[in-house]
Each structure stands twice: as C-alpha cells, then as structure tokens.
C-alpha cells in the first residue's frame, strides 16, 4: 500500500472555499465557556457539517484511504469485545440509514426484511447482505461500515450504573488510543482531573449517558489547536508527532497550525442498549480561518482571553505566537453572535 499524502507525509490537506464555509466553527461568542455544551443532534445547526448525522465532505475519500492505511499498519485500532455482536448491527443500521437519508446522491440502502443492499457511489461499493449474518459481509459488520465513515467510533457498554469502553475503531485520535483504553470505565477514560468543576462535569456526563434513550441524540463540539494536519495523533504514534508540539513554533504558522474541531456525538443503540460515541474531526488551517473575517477576529479574542484554567486544560501550543498571528485580523469591532461564518 502506498502511503497516503493528505494527512501524513506531504500533508496536502487543504479546504476549498465551500468546504471551509461548512466548517463547524465552535465559538458562538468572544469568550469561551467550558460549560457542558451539549446540543440536540437533530440535523440542524449553523453550518452544513451539522445538518447530517454522519457527515460526508470533500475529504471523504482521503480520510477513508488514511483510515485503511492506519488499520493495515496497526489492526488493533479496530477491536471489539465479543459481547458487542448485536451492537455491531445496530451501528450498521444507524450509519447506513443516516448516510442514505442525508446524502442520497452518494449512498443508497434498500431493505427487504433481512435482505439489504448497500450502495456507496463514492467508493464504488455495491453490497448485498443479510442483516444479522456476519458471513454475508466481507469483514465484521462494525468494521465494514466504520471503514466507510469519516471520523472515529467507540462503543460504550452499560453494566449497572457504569459505562465501559468495550470496543471501537480509532484511527484519528488526538492523544489517546483504543488498545490502551479498552475495557476502561467512564471515570478511568477521563483520567485524573484536578478541578472540581471538571469532576462534576464528568459525573454529570455519565449520569446523562446512563439515562440516554434512542430518541435522544446529542452532540458536543470540542476543539484543540494542532500542529500540521495529521489526523492520527494517537498514543501509538506519539514518537512521530509529539515533537511538533515542543520547542520553537513551526515556520509558516498560518499553514502549520490548525483549529481542529471534534464533533462528539452520542447515540443509544436500539437493539443492544450500547452507546455509540462518534467523533467526527474537522480541521482548518489558520491561514484558511483568516479568510473568514468574523471567524479570524473571534478566534483571536477567544485565544487571547482564554481563562487560565481552560488554557492549561486545552494545552494550546504556541499560544502567544498564535494570538500575534491573528491580531491583524481583529479590528475590535463587535461581531455578529453565533458560529456561522458571516
């Protein structure tokens, strides 16, 4: 397999204007509040990226290729405990039916009882299979559909009043890893947090997730600043990327620093009662953000005025340089509220 060049090596990743304008910019106001910013994931939102459950954009093929490359190198990035067999089919149903509904020009799902036919025009796939019969697909059902979906997915199984990370496919993680976190409880995954507010937020998140029902779908946009458009910043490959975050800032800040937004989504799966945690990653280079005046000015204010505790938690790399880079794009005039580009 030749190494893909979009998210590694040549790092050719860039956003065309129309792709940039559908970017889920996370800041609705000039000050960033860490409050539990859960929102209803109901296919509405200030940008096109939020109007589909499993969003597909111009980077689809490149990301699918990157995912296949990472999995070929490290098959452990997709692991499921055996009790998740039913949950795998839940994911197949949820993702296929959402893709076919949200992007009918690319995907089509025909169902006749248990006889299903899946067509993915973007990848040239036409697959007939029996729902519930793993032998009728070329690979296990969760892996099959996760390989055709942008973003990462993990499965959280419930035992009594606790959730456990019992499987998933993680190829675009930022600072964590599936083999390391497999089998961990909700509290263990979130690790040691010092602040009382963070602790309370983790507990509230757990209480929320434990009670979540299939009819409720929520999302939460999370953000970090990253260096170079690498998707795979998992613990496994730390040797390849950790150095980028230390020492002198990279040359050409606008090109090499990116705002990375992870739209985290929770779904309660119908048959298995397992929770699907999907993480869809978007990136925009600072130089690209700088072409949208409202976003550039707002990002400048948010980063400049970041609460010190939040700044520590977010570990924004090269923050002073970043703020200096963005300052010329901010004339201090009031900005329209909301996350939309204009």
């Amino acid at each position: 397999m030749t190494e893909p060049q979009t998210f590694r090596n040549a790092l050719t990743f860039c956003n065309a204007r129309e792709t940039l304008l559908r970017f889920p910019f996370p800041f609705a106001a000039d000050r960033y509040e860490t409050a539990a910013n859960l929102e209803q994931n109901d296919r509405t939102g200030p940008c096109a990226a939020l109007r589909a459950l499993f969003d597909v954009d111009a980077h689809y093929r490149a990301e699918i290729e990157e995912k296949a490359f990472v999995l070929a190198r490290d098959p452990q990035r997709c692991t499921l405990l055996p009790h998740l067999d039913l949950a795998q089919w839940d994911v197949v149903e949820l993702v296929m039916s959402s893709l076919a509904r949200d992007f009918p020009q690319l995907f089509r799902l025909d169902r006749d009882g248990r006889r299903w036919r899946w067509r993915n025009a973007a990848l040239g796939i036409d697959q007939s299979f029996r729902f519930g019969d793993p032998d009728s697909l070329p690979c296990p059902p969760f892996e099959y559909i996760a390989r055709q979906t942008q973003g990462d997915m993990v499965l959280l199984a419930q035992r009594g009043d606790m959730l456990y990370l019992d499987g998933g496919m993680l190829t675009a993680a930022q600072g964590w890893s599936l083999p390391f976190d497999l089998g961990m409880s909700w509290r263990e995954i979130h690790g040691e947090v010092t602040g009382e507010r963070e602790q309370a937020a983790i507990e509230r998140g757990l209480a929320f997730a434990l009670r979540m029902q299939p009819e409720t779908q929520v999302r939460r946009p999370n953000w970090v600043i990253c260096v170079t458009p690498r998707l795979d910043n998992g613990l496994e490959t730390a040797a390849e990327w950790a150095g980028l975050y230390e020492g002198a800032p990279p040359a050409d800040l606008g090109r090499n620093l990116l705002l990375r937004v992870e739209v985290q989504q929770l779904y309660r799966l119908r048959r298995s009662h397992v929770i699907l945690f999907a993480i869809r990653v978007y990136m925009a280079r600072l130089s690209e953000i700088a072409t949208v005046p409202k976003w550039a000015a707002r990002l400048h204010r948010v980063l400049r005025d970041l609460d010190p505790a939040v700044a520590r938690a977010k570990a924004v790399p090269f923050r002073d340089d970043l703020v200096a880079y963005l300052a010329p794009f901010d004339d201090g005039a009031p900005l329209a509220p909301g996350r939309a580009p204009f």
């Binding site: 405990l81 009790h83 199984a157 419930q158 035992r159 009594g160 456990y164 019992d166 009670r211 029902q213 299939p214 009819e215 298995s272 009662h273 397992v274």
Partner: peptide, 13 residues
C-alpha cells in the same frame, strides 16, 4: 411513548 430503557441486562455478563 417511544420505548425507553432504564433496566437493561448488564452488558457482557
């Protein structure tokens, strides 16, 4: 109402 579940069997037991 839609089906709601607060009493699922412990997963994987």
């Amino acid at each position: 109402s839609p089906p709601r579940n607060f009493f699922a069997p412990a997963a994987g037991a």
